[in-house]
């Protein structure tokens, strides 16, 4: 009987290790923004916006002054209609300057259920330390 308790305890410890291992497995780039304003509800994967990729090509000013992106993850009410109309991402992702909107999976590439956040940000580390998708939403 005592032995049985030990095995269950062993199994419980293992599951805790497994959860920790999942957390350790998040190593996304500093500044990667996950945007999940509407994606989960629309049964699309959330969007990952890689800041590093874009800052190699454009200075901050182009998106944050000229195109009107607020300095806040999820703070811009971006939807596909606006993008197709040439606003926000659509100012470049129009098939002319950058690839266009039919390449859904290039942006909508996050694990389903991943919350809106700036990866590796101070706020994420202080207030929302779990970067992995919420288990309930998976």
């Amino acid at each position: 009987m005592n032995n049985g308790k030990t095995t269950w305890l062993f199994a419980a410890v293992l599951s805790v290790i497994a959860v920790l291992a999942v957390d350790r497995a998040v190593f996304a780039e500093y500044g990667d923004v996950v945007i999940n304003n509407y994606s989960d509800a629309a049964e699309m994967r959330p969007v990952v916006f890689p800041h590093w990729f874009h800052r190699i090509r454009f200075r901050c000013k182009v998106c944050h002054a000229d195109l009107g992106f607020q300095f806040k993850a999820g703070g811009n009410e971006i939807n596909m209609l606006k993008i197709i109309d040439g606003e926000y991402c659509g100012a470049c992702h129009n098939g002319d300057l950058a690839w266009s909107v039919e390449n859904c999976d290039l942006c909508h590439s996050a694990k389903p259920g991943t919350p809106t956040q700036v990866h590796e940000s101070t706020l994420q580390k202080l207030l929302m330390p779990v970067a992995a998708p919420k288990p309930a939403a998976q």
Binding site: V26, F27, A28, V48, D105, C107, H108, A110
Partner: peptide, 30 residues
């Protein structure tokens, strides 16, 4: 060794998404 991993291994991209494999791995640029 875990810095700047390719998208499929970074923990937020879905390795099952058809687009993930097409994205540039950061190390290629860095």
């Amino acid at each position: 060794s875990s810095r700047n991993p390719p998208p499929a291994e970074d923990g937020i991209h879905d390795p099952g998404s058809p687009g993930t494999a097409s994205l540039q791995p950061p190390r290629l640029a860095f």
